[in-house]
């Protein structure tokens, strides 16, 4: 290899480092009870402290926790993310929690509560009525969050029966409702939703 080319390559490497710096991304860690601590912030949000060997301790006043598999595995593979600025909900991944149940009880409790709020899918406990009108279906139900009336457009596409027997209903506003097990409802409710199974 000629000298000239060598110089070129090293200049190239320098430039590359410069570009790499421009596109620098956080390293995502496996989060365990050993390297991370979660607590409830004053404002009711989740704060986190990350202590990775050979690195300075990092403190995040607010982290965002997202499920990788909200339907098939709600307690595993939770992505913990740092918002890139205060008024933002987008951010980079700090790390992944493989199973939340590896963490102390207190942590499990606050994170589960936060996730339940983020994935707000009230369970339908009683169906008062389902009326069809102009191609829309009007539902009146008791849910785990209280009584609610909502409108489902296109019932054939927006009411889905999952393989595990759960029935998911999405209303016009994009809110979801769920019936975990048909058999657990009272008879009159079961009759009203019979056609979707």
């Amino acid at each position: 290899m000629s000298d000239e080319k060598k110089i070129n390559v090293s200049a190239e490497e320098n430039e590359e480092a410069l570009v790499d710096a421009l596109f620098a991304k956080r390293i995502s860690y496996d989060l365990t009870p050993d390297n991370s601590r979660f607590f409830l912030s004053e404002g009711g949000l989740i704060s986190m402290e990350l202590s990775v060997p050979d690195k300075e301790k990092e403190f995040f006043e607010r982290v965002i926790i997202i499920r990788s598999f909200p339907i098939s595995n709600p307690t595993g593979f939770l992505s913990v993310r740092a918002p890139d600025s205060r008024g933002s909900e987008k951010g980079e991944e700090i790390g992944i929690i493989h199973d939340i149940n590896d963490f102390p009880e207190e942590t499990v409790k606050i994170i589960s509560e936060e996730l339940d709020k983020r994935y707000f899918i009230p369970e339908i406990t009683k169906v008062h009525s389902i009326r069809d009108k102009y191609g829309f279906s009007y539902w009146d139900c008791d849910t785990s969050s209280g009584r609610r009336t909502f409108i489902v457009s296109n019932p054939y596409s927006n009411i889905r029966l999952l393989d595990d027997g759960r029935l998911l209903v999405e209303d016009m506003d994009g809110s979801n409702f769920c019936i975990p097990e048909k058999k657990k409802l009272d008879n009159s409710s079961q009759r009203k939703i019979e056609a979707f199974y």
Binding site: G43, L45, I64, P70, R86, G87, S88, E89, K117, R118, Y119, F120, I121, D173, G174, S175, N176
Partner: peptide, 19 residues
């Protein structure tokens, strides 16, 4: 209280402020 943020959840939203 600044930087109001509406977080988009699935089916709901959360409104937070910075104090």
């Amino acid at each position: 209280y600044t930087e109001p943020l509406i977080e988009n959840f699935s089916g709901s939203v959360r409104f937070i402020y910075n104090r």
